[in-house]
């Protein structure tokens, strides 16, 4: 099958909340090691789309395949796919009653059935990857937003996922903390992690993304490399949107 080169395939996802259709048929494919950045106005379904991929939100229609295995309609099997599809949230969602290292290791122990010593070792390794090893014994309330987000990235990494979904990972952070989180994400992308990122950080999109997908009204309206969308095409919708952002700052 020619599809095998894609690690993740998303086909025709539809999602409604009540009468409002949030996603109106979204399809795209992701190759291993690619970083896709989703941008677009608020309320266009970017976050919902990410949640449909790991079925935290169940779409009415459409399919998601991870390495040619169907993620949608997988019943109890979804818990296997969720290990392979990591997720990082806007407000970190660290487990408040657990120290940083316990946050990272708990799923290894409870989901993967790893031995506690082994899990601890792996958790500390992942914390080192995001520069948080020294904070291993601290609780979420004792961490800055940037540190908490890095721990939550380590938590996702610990499951050895094929793909990580980032749902506005820096939207709750000030510029300085944003930078430290984006640094970690950039390193991950360079190390070959496949990432889907919903963000408004255009610098990250331009420098790190292989492709930018511009979403509006529940659909992908433009898709291409950062150069294609932002430099070569004067009249692209993406450029209008971003231009608006830049002009707004002037």
């Amino acid at each position: 099958m020619s599809d095998e080169e894609y690690i993740l395939r998303v086909e025709d996802i539809h999602k409604k909340y009540g009468n409002s259709e949030v996603l109106k048929g979204v399809s795209f494919n992701v190759k291993k090691g690619e970083t896709l950045v989703f941008i677009g106005p608020s309320g266009t379904g970017k976050s919902t789309l990410l949640r449909c991929i790991n079925q935290l939100t169940v779409p009415e229609q459409g399919n998601v395949y991870l390495r040619d295995e169907e993620v949608t309609n997988s019943g109890a099997g979804i818990n296997y796919f969720r290990q392979k599809i990591g997720m990082v949230f806007q407000n970190f969602c660290l487990f408040d009653h657990l120290s940083a290292v316990r946050n990272v290791e708990i799923a290894l122990i409870k989901v993967r059935g790893m031995k506690p010593e082994e899990a601890r070792e792996k958790a500390l390794y992942e914390l080192r990857q995001v520069g948080m090893e020294e904070w291993a014994e601290h609780y979420p309330a004792e961490l800055s937003g940037g540190q908490a987000q890095r721990v939550s990235i380590a938590r996702a990494l610990a499951m050895d996922p094929d793909v990580i979904l980032f749902d506005e990972p820096t939207s709750a952070l000030d510029p300085e903390l944003t930078r430290e989180v984006l640094e970690v994400m950039k390193k991950l992308a360079q190390a070959g992690m496949t990432m889907l990122v919903v963000t408004h950080e255009m610098g990250f999109a331009c420098n790190v993304a292989n492709r930018i997908l511009f979403m509006e009204n529940g659909k992908i309206v433009e898709e291409g490399s950062p150069t294609d969308l932002l430099e070569n095409n004067e009249s692209s919708r993406t450029r209008q949107f971003v231009g608006g952002l830049v002009m707004g700052e002037d």
Partner: peptide, 20 residues
């Protein structure tokens, strides 16, 4: 978000209730 995060790591609902 605590439940969501637990489920996103592949925990079952029961395991998330118990452990988180």
């Amino acid at each position: 978000g605590q439940m969501t995060a637990a489920r996103s790591l592949g925990m079952t609902k029961l395991s998330a209730i118990k452990n988180i």
